[in-house]
């Protein structure tokens, strides 16, 4: 997943270097390519270390549970609000177009497909990239620059396992849960609008909504949410764990955690949609 980002970066560097007409074109390309491949190698090493440390004992169960609470429970109000508003607004905006074709009764089906297949995982992931990803980048970044991570290391403990593995596992577990919850809340928002306009009952609305959803929709939605959760965790932790240059570095880590994870989430979304379309 980081590969796409780096390919884009590579193209950007090459374009930038080709525009440089001061006579140092080769040197610029060479230096930037060096940095690029060095960064790529760092990301790869970080990922490999994550998988190794995840399966090797000792395990930090308590910290994983604490992080699940931080990521999951503490994001609930925000997810509730955004999920509800998404469902409500999407229904309200879709109604006029469907009414033009006399298809307003299809609203529950349309909303269910849109929410389950795309909106719930995507909105949850984007909200969490902003809230959780930036938090991880800033927290680990400040721990790095204030030598707290070094202090863990010299006391014979494994900071990577305690800080990184627990956080990445927490986002990987909790984003799918939050995504399902966001889906439910989004449908509730939609139901309120439909009920208000057409006096459709709760049972009729949800029966119609679930009739249009198949197993593949739920499966692809959960797969996306798991992948998004992993991306948010790993990007946030990578940026924070490797931050430097004092407070400036902490700010940069938090910022990069959000920007890179959002970028990757959209790329993953696009790829998964293509794969699911082939499977359908």
């Amino acid at each position: 997943m980081f590969l796409q980002l780096y390919i884009c970066e590579l193209i950007y560097y090459i374009i930038l270097a080709s525009k440089n007409r001061t006579g140092t074109k080769k040197a610029v390309i060479s230096r930037r390519l060096d940095t690029l491949f060095s960064n790529l190698n760092d990301v790869f090493q970080f990922l490999m270390r994550f998988f190794r440390e995840t399966f090797l004992p000792p395990y930090e169960f308590k910290e994983v549970v604490r992080q699940c609470y931080e990521v999951g429970y503490k994001s609930l109000p925000l997810i509730t609000m955004t999920g509800f508003i998404t469902g409500l607004v999407f229904t309200k905006q879709s109604r006029p177009s469907l009414e033009e074709f006399g298809a307003a009764s299809w609203l529950p089906n349309l909303i269910a497909i849109a929410v389950v297949r795309a909106l719930a995982p995507l909105v949850t992931a984007l909200i969490c990239a902003g809230k959780v990803g930036s938090n991880m980048g800033a927290e680990l970044g400040s721990m790095r620059v204030t030598e707290q991570i070094d202090a863990m290391e010299v006391s014979g403990t494994n900071p990577f396992k305690f800080l990184v593995v627990s956080r990445v596992l927490a986002t990987t577990f909790m984003i799918p849960v939050l995504s399902m919850y966001a889906g439910f809340v989004g449908l509730m928002g939609s139901f309120i609008n439909v009920n208000d306009e057409e006096q459709t009952s709760y049972t009729t609305f949800f029966q119609q909504a679930f009739d249009s959803i198949v197993f593949l929709d739920i499966f692809s939605s959960l797969t996306k949410a798991i992948l998004f959760g992993f991306t948010i965790g790993i990007v946030g932790c990578y940026q924070g764990y490797n931050s430097s240059k004092g407070t400036e570095g902490v700010g940069k880590a938090a910022n990069m955690a959000v920007v890179v994870s959002m970028f990757l989430i959209f790329i993953e979304e696009t790829l998964i949609v293509q794969v699911v379309a082939v499977m359908r």
């Binding site: 721990m143 030598e147 707290q148 202090a151 010299v154 006391s155 403990t157």
Partner: peptide, 27 residues
Amino acid sequence: IGFSFQNSALYDSMTVRENLEFPLVRN
């Protein structure tokens, strides 16, 4: 080896008790 850092490097999110327990319970 005990390493006392210039800025103490205490773990901000933990109490004093948890700071002291952290290396002990893991070692």
